[in-house]
Design a protein around this nucleic acid. Sequence first.
DNA 1: TAGATACTTGACAAAAGAGTCATGTTTAGG
DNA 2: CCTAAACATGACTCTTTTGTCAAGTATCTA
Lengths: 164, 164
Amino acid sequence: MKITAQEEYGLRCLLQLAQANEEKGLTVKEIALGEGLSPAYVEKLLRLLGKGGLIHSVRGVKGGYLLNKSPQEISLGAVVRALGKIPTTREICDRFTGNRTSCIHIDNCCIRAAWETMTAAIHSFLDKTFLSDLVGGETKVRQALNHQTLPVLTRFPGNRGGGG
Amino acid sequence: MKITAQEEYGLRCLLQLAQANEEKGLTVKEIALGEGLSPAYVEKLLRLLGKGGLIHSVRGVKGGYLLNKSPQEISLGAVVRALGKIPTTREICDRFTGNRTSCIHIDNCCIRAAWETMTAAIHSFLDKTFLSDLVGGETKVRQALNHQTLPVLTRFPGNRGGGG
DNA sequence: TAGATACTTGACAAAAGAGTCATGTTTAGG
DNA sequence: CCTAAACATGACTCTTTTGTCAAGTATCTA
């Protein structure tokens, strides 16, 4: 379970745009410099974000990249889906089939229930958090996110004994 | 953000053991057959789980693999950490450094606050869920997990306007 | 209409992850 | 002590992910 490079760096590029002049946007070089990435790589990331409908570009001298919507309207969920996706439970079941054409547990899978609970919670968080929430200094952002965020994903307390 | 093959398949192997005779355990072949995986791959996964201290093996004819602890005592968190880990925020910062030796945002990173909130929630869930919770049929498991699990990871409601 | 700046794209190379294989070690049973 | 069953391990291959490169197209300025 890990965050991919595309998700991390793509989000960072987008956050640069969210903090830039709304009408001028930023050039690839500016973003690359601001993130410590190569321009070539930034281009690739921006292409993904463009395909995902989150940004557009203006060509030519004075060109650059701009957000399609305001930072308040771009959720982390949308960003992650454009950059790498968090697979749905269905996709997880289709992916982990072992040697077979479909997963051996397709009819009755206990792990599926666990992944579903977890990914639902992750999506719920990502879809409620917006680029604008991540602007303004780490301390402020942390406080905003931590209010009411924990405890989370608690279990039903009477179900510890296992068996079945 | 995705679940790795090692996590998925490793957990499945472990769940086989959790459902097996506690004293006899299972052979590699039995697990491989039960999961639709190749014996060679199952061996590799079991090696990881062994290194993580979750299982041990008995060699020779009549040998096999057994859990070190009862399913009630093995959390999904421990399983995931043995198989692939969910990186800590610190590890995320150390990994995504771009072209530089340390991340350009190391002193003040808004994304870090977001990942930290999210991974804390994931760990909280994984550490409260045990192998024994995933035994006994999907419907039962789903009901147990869904009680009190949602809504989760909510944001502080007054923080939508961005800026700062 | 040249020249500079900047976006666009497909193909490629390097690294990491997934999965296999060959070979070796241990043990039960004849 | 030989054989078969079962675990043990390092090296290897295949695939996916990361990141780079080269060769384009569009636009502004002069």
